[in-house]
Amino acid sequence: MRLTHEPPAPRHYALMPLLIAGVVIVAVASLRLGPVTLSLDRLLAVVMGHGDPVATTILLDLRLPRTLIGLLVGAMLGLAGAVLQGYLRNPLAEPSVLGASNAAALGAVAAIYFGVAGWHPAMLPLLSIATGLVALLLLFTLAGRAESALTLILAGIAVSTLAGAGISLALNLSPNPFAAMEIMTWLMGSIENRSIDHVWIVLPCVILGGALLLIDRRALDALTLGEDGARSLGVDLRRTRTRLLLGVAIGVGGAVSVSGSIGFIGLIVPHLVRPLTDRSPSAILLPSLLGGAILLVAADILVRLIPTSSELKLGVVTAFLGVPIFLLHLLRERRTW
């Protein structure tokens, strides 16, 4: 009889330390790299409080908020993707599958369309989070008491499509090409030119949403056995669903409100880390959280370093990065699974 490892532990013990190291490396790189490369000495000088004014401004006003937002948004998308794949028992689930991303984007688009976004930098994210929560109520109403994953996915598609239609309507009716352009640009997703105010908006959302998503990791494992199997193991599926949907609406809604829609991170990161764990839904949560943060910040560094005439958008880069990573993974899986 061999029981060599504790069942809940990831199969690769080095996984978490490596991911944490990865987060530190991309964070430092993100602070250093850009149009002006800051040396580690100048970076440390600013941290110690005696840096030169140029370095201080670049670091504290530009790169620090950008890096923090990148880490928070990436972590949230990675975690939400992992949780939803486990909960819906569908490897194609991603943070936007239940409509939270589109709904949050609709709020932001409305803020731009009606000019509310101009009042205060916080207006756009706040309106965006608000529509995300309204969409959640709609989702609950549509899905009703049914606990099946399929019902929820169908309701999510309905909410998502409705929000998408609203966004198209705003583009259709936009008073001038500039307004349409502004909406399109926002929708592509970016964490450029964000201030520390944005960090304060996204931080509580990610902490609250993330906590709600992490509570039910045992329930996700139990759902491996199907809904009856999970309930016979003492899982209260109704409460689990409420917590998970709230977590996604608050966390992903908050992330999208600041960054715009950034695709693929939440879909591919769980697939990348899953083979390195024991493949149970709970084991991939924290690795996906860290992996999402790494991937998003790394993509954002690429945005800054690739020389283009007009600035690249983060959402465009993650989509381009995502496809080859996904294809590579698909080819590997086809041989083993």
Binding site: G86, S232, L233, R279, S280
Partner: peptide, 27 residues
């Protein structure tokens, strides 16, 4: 109080046997 083995063999993720049996300890 009561353990339950549902009909069929629903299993949504490719877990190891040991990890799968360990799910029984969740309650």
């Amino acid at each position: 109080a009561i353990a339950y083995l549902p009909q069929g063999q629903t299993l949504h993720w490719p877990l190891s046997v040991e990890r799968l049996v360990a799910l029984g300890r969740l309650p």
